[in-house]
Design a binder for these strands. Structure first.
Lengths: 135, 135
DNA sequence: CTAGTTGCAAATCATTTGCACTTGC
DNA sequence: GCAAGTGCAAATGATTTGCAACTAG
């Protein structure tokens, strides 16, 4: 299963990595902080140090297996890489994150980058507010 | 001059605040980190502690005098509040920041928030890449 | 076997806070 | 004069790193 993915990324298929990757893939809320992963591992009975979580997440990011986001709040949020780029709606009350993709916005971004002669490498759009459930 | 602005925000017009506000208004690159402000103050012969810089910037933000951004990199960037909201093109090579405002994107964001029944409070779009000068 | 990994503790970085001292108004 | 503001040093919270012990291939 994930064994191969790790090997392909030049990473040994160790227990911590497999567990973390599996968790990222299956987590209900798949936008998680390092701390979230740490707690989940602990709860699952896995004895993985926080330092390892950070190292693994950083390696996964470098390998293109996960994306790292810097939402407001001063800490990083990770999510397993999707086939498709997307943007985020972040609820400032409950922390829920919804994803969306708008072709019109995507297209405009390309045009703006071109206008400013910018070689676009990545882009992210975050909408902060209060979600339907929290209003 | 800025005296009034501070008073209106309920802040005493102290030397540190006046100096920092003036710097933010006049800085060539007006997207600066707390450290940037600190160095600039030191260079200008002002003896203002880093803690004060942070306190003042935070108060300015609360007062709506400046905006705080969380670009990639794990630290905050501040800019004096403009009359108009805008988004950013951030050069990952030289750190230059360009601003833009696209009515089409702005409109789409409103619609998307509505679609998801999100009460939008703020939003920001950052395009990371290599600017014309660095290519 | 052995280079890559891990856990733990100590280190680092950005930012915040406690506190005694200063300064606007 | 006195509440608000400041500098400094110590505290914090997120993340990183040094290092000796471990494991995948």
């Amino acid at each position: 299963m994930n064994d191969k993915e790790l090997r392909k990324a030049g990473l040994k298929a160790t227990a911590p990595r497999l567990k973390i990757l599996q968790f990222l893939a299956e987590a209900a809320q798949h936008h998680v902080s390092a701390e979230d992963v740490y707690k989940a591992m602990k709860q699952a009975g896995e004895d993985i140090g926080l330092a390892t979580i950070y190292r693994v997440l950083t390696q996964f990011e470098a390998a293109g297996l996960v994306d790292r986001h810097h939402f407001e709040g001063g800490y990083s949020v990770f999510e397993i890489r999707q086939d498709q780029h997307h943007d985020h709606l972040v609820c400032i009350k409950c922390g829920a994150v919804e994803e969306f993709l708008d072709p019109i916005i995507e297209a405009r971004q390309q045009e703006i980058a071109k206008e400013y002669r910018f070689e676009m490498i990545e882009h992210n759009l975050n909408i902060y507010g209060v979600c339907a459930r929290c209003r």
